[in-house]
Structures are given as structure tokens and as C-alpha cells.
């Protein structure tokens, strides 16, 4: 197995992590609150894919828009239950409410699907592509392409559309956005929906190779949090870079040392980032003015 092959696997996994981190950062930007149900919403997307795959035996690439649409609605519902009733409370209250939503979701998965792991159908088909010494699964390549396309699409929407400008305005200053006529609550609900849709698609992409199971979202929430912190709080580019960093340590570095050592090196690297750039790789240094 070559370094190139491992790098492709690492980037494919990182692309899925990046989608998760992007969804996480959308919600952070829109609300200022951390959504700790995010990993469980990734699993929810995986379970939706498993369920749809059982009902309609089609490649998941065909069902992707359906998964995204369902998860968008789920995200809006989460915002109505866990965010809006607490909108005037401190951010830590929302932190707890999303944590509770995550626990509820885990138990819903357990009741509906049982404790065992499930695999969703592949994006296109199962199998391995060979190119010289490199062998890579079609699913990993598909994950890379789909995640890359979605990351590019969200960039275009955020940077070059009126909807994106409203989203950014709401993220920067909710009161000012409201004052200039933006329907802030609708924008926040839509952001929860979009972030959850990205998480759900990531779950769909991961559910074929890596399975879904009720507690599978817990480490994903942690990865998303780390990616956003190391990339720069609220930075979309930072979230992508942070996610890639985690996956490259998990896949490439651990090919040369044990998993335990690779994990230790990952967290050491993160500490170094914080030491030299406390604001994160793409973060802006915030100074308090007296």
C-alpha cells in the first residue's frame, strides 16, 4: 500500500469530516452556540440512508437529495426544540440542550434500529479501482467527489449569493441584520437546516464503509469541535483544514506509528497550533477594548 493510496483514503475521510465540521461551523456562526448533537445528526443521516436504501434499492447518489432534504427538516426541528426556546439564555444553555437532543437521538436510533451496526448502500457501487500500485475503493473516491462538490457549492452560496450575504450578516450581528429587514429567525432556522443537511450527507457517505450505530456520533462531535477550534472559530476554510488535519493524522501518520502514538501526535500538533496561533489557523485575533 503506497503513501499515495493512504493519502487518498485520508483526504476522502477528511472530506467527510470537513462536511461535518462545516455544518457545525454554520450553526456556530448563526447562533454563537455549539451544537453538541451534531455527531448524532451525522448518524441520523446515516440511518436515513440505511432506511431509504432498504425501501428503494438505488445507488445512494440518486437518493442523496432526499437524504439532504429530510435532514434539512430535521435540522429545522432541532432548532425549534433546542435553540429558539432558549434564544435569550446564555450560550451554555443551548450547549446543554443540544447535548440532550444528542442523547435522545441515540436512544431513538437504539429503539428503531437496534444496537447493532448497519451499512448503507454504496454511493454508486462497491468495488476497488486499481491504478498501478494504488488501489482505492469506489466509495472513497465518490465520497471525495461529493464532499468536494458540496464544499465548493456552499462556498459559492456564502460568497456570491444574496442568501449567503443574509446568512453572513445574521452571523456577524443579529440585531443589525434584523434592523435592515432580514428575517433573522428564518435565517437561523435555515442555517440549522443547512448545517444538519451537510451532517446528514456526511453520515450517508460514511455509513457504507464505516457503518452507523447508535453511539457512533459521539467522536464525530468531538472531531468537528476540534476542527473548528484549530481552524479558527467560525472560519469555514479553517473547519475544512482542521478536519483534513485530523483525518491525515488518523490515516497517514498512523501508517507509520501505532494508533495510540498517532493520536498523541495529533493532539500534540493541536497544542502547538494553539501555542503559536491561539486564534486558530484562520481565526482573527480578538482584542478586548477597555
Amino acid at each position: 500500500m503506497t503513501l499515495l493510496q493512504l493519502a487518498i483514503n485520508g483526504v476522502a475521510l477528511g472530506a467527510a469530516y470537513a462536511l461535518i465540521a462545516l455544518g457545525f461551523v454554520f450553526i456556530v456562526n448563526a447562533t454563537g452556540a455549539v451544537n453538541f448533537a451534531h455527531g448524532d445528526l451525522v448518524m441520523a443521516g446515516g440511518y436515513v440512508a440505511v432506511g431509504l436504501g432498504a425501501m428503494a434499492p438505488l445507488p445512494m447518489i440518486v437518493l442523496l437529495p432526499v437524504v439532504a432534504a429530510i435532514m434539512f427538516v430535521v435540522g429545522v426541528v432541532v432548532s425549534l426544540v433546542a435553540y429558539f426556546p432558549l434564544i435569550n439564555r446564555p450560550p451554555s444553555t443551548v450547549f446543554i440542550s443540544t447535548l440532550l437532543i444528542g442523547i435522545v437521538l441515540q436512544n431513538v436510533f437504539l429503539v428503531l434500529f437496534g444496537p447493532q451496526a448497519h451499512a448503507a448502500p454504496p454511493l454508486i457501487q462497491s468495488g476497488i479501482l486499481h491504478a498501478g500500485p494504488v488501489a482505492i475503493s469506489i466509495q472513497a473516491l465518490g465520497t471525495l467527489v461529493v464532499a468536494g462538490a458540496l464544499i465548493a457549492l456552499q462556498y459559492l452560496i456564502f460568497a456570491h449569493t444574496q442568501i449567503g450575504r443574509r446568512l453572513r450578516a445574521t452571523a456577524q450581528d443579529r440585531q443589525m441584520a434584523q434592523a435592515i429587514g432580514i428575517r433573522v429567525h428564518a435565517v437561523i432556522a435555515a442555517t440549522f437546516g443547512a448545517g444538519t443537511a451537510l451532517a446528514g450527507v456526511a453520515g450517508m457517505l460514511l455509513a457504507n464503509q464505516f457503518f452507523v450505530y447508535p453511539t457512533g456520533g459521539i467522536p464525530l462531535s468531538v472531531y468537528a469541535y476540534i476542527a473548528v477550534v484549530v481552524g479558527g472559530w467560525g472560519s469555514i476554510a479553517g473547519a475544512v483544514v482542521g478536519a483534513m488535519m485530523i483525518s491525515l493524522f488518523q490515516v497517514v501518520v498512523s501508517a507509520y506509528v501505532s494508533y495510540a502514538v498517532a493520536t498523541g501526535l495529533l493532539y500534540l500538533a493541536l497544542l502547538l497550533v494553539f501555542f503559536f496561533r491561539p486564534q486558530g489557523i484562520f481565526g482573527e485575533l480578538v482584542r478586548r477594548r477597555v
Binding site: M1, Q5, L6, L13, Q250, V251, V252, A255, Y259, A260
Partner: peptide, 16 residues
């Protein structure tokens, strides 16, 4: 190797 965490996803580095 006895350091595989139960939540490890990609096993390709181990298998390499």
C-alpha cells in the same frame, strides 16, 4: 498492535 480504539474508522494504515 494493541492500540486500536473502538471508534477507529479507517483501518487502512494498520493494514499497511
Amino acid at each position: 498492535d494493541n492500540s486500536i480504539a473502538p471508534d477507529t474508522k479507517d483501518m487502512s494504515p494498520l493494514l499497511a
